[in-house]
Design a protein around this nucleic acid. Structure first.
Length: 234
DNA sequence: ACCGAATGCTCAGTTACGTCA
DNA sequence: GCTGACGTAACTGAGCATTCG
């Protein structure tokens, strides 16, 4: 190791004393800085491809082969590593930019879809609300329909008819937390205090009423607010 | 074993020069 | 011929690791 260092010192790594530095600076004006020949560059590039850092012994050998000072070889490798690094950073930047642009496009389309769905929900809830009010009026007017459920049933029938007329019948398939995939409802409410299990075998209207009373913005907020990245993009 | 000086390496940033449009 | 942009050889200074007395 020490032997190698001795070699380096003796075989051409010029230590910069102040006098040698001054003379070199003076010589710059006299002796032009020469670019390496194509052959030298080819050889250096060839070796750089296999190893970006040179062992001292290899550096010495290469310098001898190319007729350069070992210091010049070391500096060439140093500069080459720097160029390679900046190129790599540039490539990574371009790649990230493409990913960013793709995500931005996707986000924009999701945002538009969200707005479209939001306005649709508002429209539907408005329609349901007006039908609901109509149903109540009907209930108030009829006292012989025998129960509180009939007014709502009429309401649903009216709404269904309206949806059907507007080609929106499929939108009537509404599930809430209390409904299963068959459209039947079966809620199980556990009261912790009394530990009672209340089973409602058939409460579709209650479930529907619950659904009617949900503020659409809340539904949408639930799906979005938890995803803070959406805020980031807006 | 520990310490400090000497030495060399790497890296990021800069300077200086050559080339070219 | 002059000029500005660009590429690159060479330099600088800081930080780190190793060696040696």
């Amino acid at each position: 190791m020490m032997e190698e260092r001795e070699n380096i010192l003796h075989e051409g790594v010029e230590l910069e004393t102040s006098s040698s530095l001054n003379s070199r600076k003076k010589n710059k004006k006299v002796e032009n800085k020469r670019r390496f020949s194509d052959e030298q560059i080819r050889s250096l590039e060839c070796i750089f491809e296999s190893e970006s850092k040179l062992e001292p012994r290899k550096k010495m050998q290469l310098a001898r082969d190319l007729g350069l000072q070992p210091r010049q070889v070391a500096i060439w490798f140093q500069n080459r590593r720097a160029r390679w690094k900046s190129k790599r950073i540039e490539q990574e930047y371009r790649k990230l930019k493409v990913e960013y642009d793709t995500l931005a496009l996707k986000f924009q389309s999701l945002k538009e879809e969200k707005e479209s769905l939001q306005s649709e929900v508002q429209k539907l809830s408005y329609m349901v609300e007006t039908s609901h009010e109509g149903g109540r009026e009907g209930k108030e007017n009829s006292t012989e329909d025998g129960g509180s459920g009939n007014g709502y049933r009429n309401c649903i029938a009216e709404t269904k008819e309206r949806f059907s007329n507007e080609g929106l019948e499929d939108r009537m398939v509404i599930y809430s937390d209390d409904q299963d995939e068959r459209g039947l409802t079966r809620t199980e409410k556990v009261d912790d205090r009394e530990n009672q299990v209340l089973r409602n075998e058939e409460i579709p209207l209650t479930a529907l009423e619950k659904w009617y009373n949900v503020d659409p913005s809340v539904i949408l907020d639930q799906s979005c607010s938890s995803s803070q990245w959406l805020d980031f993009w807006t």
